[in-house]
Every structure is written in structure tokens, then in C-alpha cells.
Design a protein around this nucleic acid. Sequence first.
DNA 1: TTCATTTTTGAAATCATTGCAAATATACAA
DNA 2: TTGTATATTTGCAATGATTTCAAAAATGAA
Lengths: 140, 140
Amino acid sequence: MKVSRAELKQELIDAGIRPSVQRLAIFEYVRKSCQHPTAEVVYEALCDELGSLSLTTVYNTLKLFVDAGLISMLTIDDTFRCFDGNRCCHAHFRCNTCGKIVDLQMKKDFISLVEGLEGYEITDAQLYLKGFCPTCLENK
Amino acid sequence: MKVSRAELKQELIDAGIRPSVQRLAIFEYVRKSCQHPTAEVVYEALCDELGSLSLTTVYNTLKLFVDAGLISMLTIDDTFRCFDGNRCCHAHFRCNTCGKIVDLQMKKDFISLVEGLEGYEITDAQLYLKGFCPTCLENK
DNA sequence: TTCATTTTTGAAATCATTGCAAATATACAA
DNA sequence: TTGTATATTTGCAATGATTTCAAAAATGAA
């Protein structure tokens, strides 16, 4: 999580993406957040910092980053998409009650467990778990 | 895939769901399909067979089945939900080009690879892979 | 500076899904 | 069987996250 703005900027350039003020701010926000923000959340958080910002820009920019493989998009919640800047291999859990999404470490990469992938090219892999978190189970 | 209508009916009853004509038809369709149909696809397929059918009924019924754990809902495509009646543990792959969703067998259950699940109750697990299928890779 | 290209913007449109209240079907008691 | 309460289905309107689009602003090259 200790990444400087200059490093993030270079990462955008390396990916062939011109680091505009908006793009860099959005990239930094998603990369440093551990909360899996939605486009709306990114927009709300950066509106003040940037003076002005369009929700359309946030949507466009997040899509740009996802297509470039810089961040990933989560569809663990079926009513909205959220974004994840954590590049380490990990799974996600979403609580059916409180809706919170948490990262879970993996003992080993899960793609190795999948059979019949000969001839396929994999660009993204997500492991989603749903259920009830310890806190919500206690409050039942 | 060799399941009789009577067995499907009993399965609904065992789950506490009254097997109306619409419900049984929808249940049978999703259980026997290998195509991961959307609500719209189920609706189109059963409209004729049932004489009449409401899209709302299809949505309501699919949700009922998902909540009862009889089928699962896939969010591997972020623009629509689709449904899966295959109860065996398997992963899903979606091609970025043709959009086709295919089942993939697992060497072992993937939940066992996830760390830190003490205190959690898991009700659903999905492993989604995305990329390019062999056919689309060839046509490039 | 000037011009071409890229990026941002806001408002309108899209569309899968849900809410809702009326209509219909079903179960059960009398 | 009939009446009545309950469960289910239906169609249409509403919702809301996301996209489209064309104009405005910013940027880069010459």
C-alpha cells in the first residue's frame, strides 16, 4: 500500500494511459482503498479534492483501468459493481446481511485447480464466497 | 441430467415450495439446461409451453429457487444475471469475445484453499474465469 | 500561436430488475 | 359443494446503475 504518486503515474504511463489529473486521482484512490469502492463512492470521495468531477469520467476511467489490467472489477454484489486495486491473488467474501466485502488470503492460486483449460487464455479470475460474517452471526 | 418431473416436483416440496405449473416448468428448464439461461431466456422458452407466462413470475421464481439453494445465480457477466441448475461443484469461464459461459471441472473444492474462514458461514461459492476461448483465439 | 487530438463533462437514454396492486388459482373448513 | 382465506401470477410502472452522445475543455505537436 506504500506507493508514491510518482510510481502510480509511471504505472499509468507504462500501461499506455496518459496520467491526467482525474485519472491519477482515481487510480490512487482505488489502489490505496481497502474498501472495494463503487464508481459512486470514488466520485463522492474525489469531488472535493478535484474541485469538480463527472461521474461519467469515473465510469470511463475505471473501465479503462480494468481493460488495461491495472485494477479489477468485482461483481460479487449483483446490484452494483465495485473495484479492487489489490493486485495480490485473493478471494472475496460478501456478507448476505451487512453487505460488507472482505479480502481473504488463499493457500494457493485457485486457477491451478481448474481442469480443462488447455487452449484457453485467462485474463481474470475471481473467487467469490457469500454467507454470513462472524459479526452478523453473533447479532442474530 | 436424467431427472423425472416427479422427482423435481418432490424436490420443490421438500424445499417447502409449492409446485405450481409455472414453478415446476421453470425449475425443470433451469435444471436441465446446460446453457446458463437468463430470466429472459427462460421466459422466451416457456411462454409457448405454458400458453402464457409473466416475466415477473420468472424473476420471482428464480429468486425463490436461489434463496432455497435449489439453483445458483451467476454474475460472471456484469450486464445480466444467469442461472445454473448444475449442483456439482464447478467453475465457470466466460469468453470476452463471444460471451459464451462454459462449466469447468475442479480438481478439488476451492473453499478449502481459502484462509481465515473461521467464524464465517458460507452459503455460496463461485469461481469465475474470464478470457478467450479456443475458438475465438483461432479466429483472431 | 494554431490546429488536431485526447479527455472531460452533464444530461438524456438504456435496460435489466423490482415494486405494486389487481386478478387468478389453490387449499381448506363448513 | 360452496365460501373464504391464502398463495401465486400477472402486467405495467418505477427504479437505478451504467452508457451514450455531442459539446466543451485540456493537451500536445508543429
